[in-house]
C-alpha cells in the first residue's frame, strides 16, 4: 500500500503527518502484526497439543512441510514485530548518546535470532 493511498488528499494538501516515511513505517508495523496473529494461534495450539510428547514427536512435527513453512513465516513475522516494537520503546526511553548503538544492536540481534531459528528449522526439515 502506497503513501498516497493511506493518506487523505486533504491531509496531504495541508502537509499533515510525518514529513518523511511515517505512513510507510506505520503500515509495515500493522501488516506484520496482522500476519503474526494467526501464526501465533497456530503455534500455541500446536505446542499445546504436543506438550510432554518428547523429542521424537517434536522433531517429526517440525519435519512436516506445513510446520516448516508456518514456522518460517512465524519467525520472520515475529522478529519484524519485535524489532518494530522495541524500536518504539527504545526511542521513548533512551535519550542519551547510546540510543543509536542500542537501536542498531537490537536490530542486528533480531536478525541474528531470526536467522538462527530459520537455520534450525531448515536443518531439521532437511534431515541433517
Amino acid at each position: 500500500m502506497s503513501n498516497a493511498r493511506m493518506r487523505s488528499p486533504l491531509g496531504r494538501a495541508l502537509g499533515l503527518g510525518s514529513a518523511k516515511d511515517g505512513v510507510e513505517a506505520w503500515w509495515r508495523e500493522r501488516v506484520w502484526a496482522v500476519a503474526l496473529a494467526p501464526l501465533t494461534v497456530w503455534l500455541t495450539v500446536s505446542i499445546l497439543m504436543r506438550a510432554d510428547k518428547g523429542y521424537a514427536a517434536v522433531v517429526a512435527w517440525l519435519k512436516m512441510p506445513v510446520t516448516t513453512t508456518l514456522m518460517t513465516l512465524l519467525l520472520v513475522a515475529l522478529f519484524h514485530h519485535i524489532a518494530f516494537g522495541l524500536q518504539v520503546v527504545i526511542e521513548d526511553y533512551v535519550h542519551s548518546r547510546i540510543k543509536i548503538p542500542v537501536l542498531v544492536g537490537m536490530r542486528l540481534g533480531c536478525l541474528a535470532l531470526g536467522v538462527a531459528g530459520l537455520v534450525a528449522i531448515l536443518k531439521i526439515a532437511l534431515g541433517a
Partner: peptide, 25 residues
C-alpha cells in the same frame, strides 16, 4: 511485549536445541 521478546529468544533456543539433537533438547 518486552517480556514476550525474551520468550521469542526462548523459542529460538528451543528450535536450535531440537536441531542440535536429543541431548540438547
Amino acid at each position: 511485549g518486552i517480556a514476550l521478546s525474551a520468550y521469542a529468544v526462548a523459542l529460538v533456543i528451543w528450535l536450535v536445541a531440537a536441531a542440535a539433537g536429543p541431548d540438547a533438547y
